[in-house]
Design a protein around this nucleic acid. Sequence first.
RNA 1: GGAGGAGUGGCCGAGUGGUUGAAGGCGCUGCUCUCGAAAAGCAGUAUAGGGGCAACUCUAUCGCGAGUUCGAAUCUCGCCUCCUCCGCCA
Length: 436
Amino acid sequence: MIDIQFIRDNPEAVAEKSKQKGYIVDVSQLLQLDEERRNLIPGIEALRQQRNENAAKVKNAGGKPDEALIKQGQLLKMELSQAEEQLGGVEEQLDKLLRTVPNMPLDDVPVGATEDENVVAKTVGEPKEFEFKPKHEWELAEPKNLIDKERAAKIAGSRFAYLKGDLVKLQFAIVQFVLQTLGDEKVLEKLIQENNLNLVAKPFTPVLPPAMLRTEPYVASARLNAEEVTYRAGQPEDDLWLNASAEHTLCTMYWNEILPEDMLPIRYIGYSTSFRREAGTYGKDAEGIFRMHQFDKLEMEVFSTAETGVDEHLLLVAIQEYLVQQLGLPYRVIQKCTADIGKPNARGIDIDCWFPGQGKYRETHTADYMTDYQARDLKVRVRRGGGEVELVHTNDATAFALGRTLKAIMENYQTHDGHIIVPEVLRPYMGGQSEL
RNA sequence: GGAGGAGUGGCCGAGUGGUUGAAGGCGCUGCUCUCGAAAAGCAGUAUAGGGGCAACUCUAUCGCGAGUUCGAAUCUCGCCUCCUCCGCCA
């Protein structure tokens, strides 16, 4: 949620920047409701004060009840409940409207109306020239019996798969490699220095989070999207959703808490199976394992102070690039435009890896910087040294979405006779195995 | 799933209808004392919202929500969480 004070101070900018992100916000109605609310509050508080004083008088009147005072109290109670009902209505409308306001994009976010206006910030590595027609991952998997979508469809429907054999070992090798890398202060220090960031090299703590969460924290995280993305878990009365990313159970971890400043930055590397409805994507990426209802993902999440929020974001992008480079995958870095960064984001970066089967760069990573937008509703705060309480800044970023990463490795490392070379850095985690 | 018990400030803990936003203790901060420290003493020490240039002031919050009452931490109902016992279970 955005700061109402910011809207009061910058009504035009809020309308304009919301529009840039594709959100039409009725700022004047919002401010009018805000004013109504603030006009109603003093009256209610005065009534409450009278009620409290009246009750005190009844008590001090001694043993026998004073009928006049009790009558007065009953009257005040009625007046108060009417006024509170009115305020409640206004606050409900205001809250609803306030939630339609997206986070404001940072100044360097390109303005654009669709994802076509995203900007390629840089391209790293050259797509490998194959002396044969490179295959898709499903073609490579078939003879080796690494992916079984047909039986998965029989059991769970479309967009599910059984991953098997060496592919599974490869996935867990990636997991080990990432945990090792993000736990290594030397790697972080190097990336911090190379990018001139003003940060400490505190390593990431691995986390296995719950894969489900309740409605209330999910809504507060600004990530619940019941129409297109989020699966309900169990029956409605269970009030549980399947997380669509470990980010959703990580960013909500400190819901309603005030953290001591020395805890920050908190850097987590979470591993979780993620579930997505993929509504409205019928037929899109129907083949292979690129777009699934269920996939495993390593996700970075950082809680920081406001001052270091941007640098933490830049560090996460640097880590993403480092990880992709270590796997030897050609990629490009996309600076997402205002239309594509998402409602709670102030800035968003995608990394697209090269997929030889399609001959295209496709999205494998994303990095989101939410400033205090997400923390405001989640009420995740930090008590600074001087005692002031402030909202934290939140950042999340993909380390590896395993399905897409496996696909990228398979396609980029394929040989003419249909084998797959294991990237050098992963071999130690596969008992030295060099080929699938 | 069944039966019972409990949830109070950073922590422990008192409090079953009336200056209790909350005793007492611990912790923390400042001051006094000291060459310094400890000890001791004094003072302060929640969050959110409204008003005020400010000092300050008002309102709300005792797991969450609703209700009863002139008045609720305290009574009633629903929910959540934790603990104990039984059952089931990786």
